[in-house]
Design a protein around this nucleic acid. Sequence first.
DNA 1: CGGTTATATGCCCGTCAAGGAATATTGGAA
DNA 2: TTCCAATATTCCTTGACGGGCATATAACCG
Lengths: 114, 114
Amino acid sequence: MSDSALWTALADPHRRAVVALLLERSRPVGEIAEACGLSQPSASKHLKVLREAGIVRVRQDAQRRVYALDPAPIAALDAWLAPYRRLWNRSLDALGRRLDEAPDDSTEPSTPKD
Amino acid sequence: MSDSALWTALADPHRRAVVALLLERSRPVGEIAEACGLSQPSASKHLKVLREAGIVRVRQDAQRRVYALDPAPIAALDAWLAPYRRLWNRSLDALGRRLDEAPDDSTEPSTPKD
DNA sequence: CGGTTATATGCCCGTCAAGGAATATTGGAA
DNA sequence: TTCCAATATTCCTTGACGGGCATATAACCG
C-alpha cells in the first residue's frame, strides 16, 4: 500500500486491463482471466498484487472470489497528479481553452483506453 | 511514448523524485543527480527513460543539458484517470462532500509527496 | 591543439517480476 | 466422506531493470 506499490501495480498492462474491467463491474477471478486473456494462475497473481496495493478488494461468494475496485488508491493517484495538473492547465490556458465549466459526469461512461 | 512507457517510467521512485524536482523548475543533469542522491550515470539513465516516455525534454546550454517537464504525458495520465474519478467522486458524494466549486489553482503550490 | 567540464553509454552483475505448469486449498454438492 | 469447481500458491526459468564502474562523447577554454 506504500504508494510505491500503487505505481508498480499499475505499471503492468495486464493489471491496468483488469482495473479497467473492474471499473465496469465487479467480477470473479474466472471472468477476469477470460476477459483479459490471462491464465487462471496469472490472473490470481495479478489480483494479489492489486489487492496488496489496495486497489481491489475481495468478497467471497461460495467458491468464488468476487473482486471490486477500491476508489481510494486511485484517488491517491489523482492527488499525486494535482501539482502537475497546474502545469498543463497553464499550457491549456495558453491555448485559450477553457473546459472547467463541464458538469460532473462530463467524461465518457466506462471503458478507458489502454 | 507508448503509454505503457509512461507508466513504467513513473513506476520508479527515483524517477518520480526527478519529476517532482523538475516541477519546481528545469535543471541540468548534475543538479538533478545531486538533489536526488543519484550518481551521474544513474541520473542520465533515468532521464533517458523519462525522455523516451516523453515526460521530459532537453535543452542544450553549452555543455549542459537542461531537463524540463513536458506537460502532455502527465495530461495523458489524467485522462486515463478520468473514468475512475467518477468512481471515487461517487464515494465522496456519499459523504456529502462537494469540492468541485474550488477555483482553478486550489491545489498546493509545488512540492508533491513521494 | 590539449585539457577540462558535463553528460551519455557500455559492460557486468545481482535482483526482481512475470509466465507456465503442476499442485495445494477451500467451499459446495452428491 | 468423496468428488468437483473455483481459486490460490509453489517451483522454475527467463528476461528486464537498476547500480557501479569505466569509458566515450561533446562543448567550452586556454
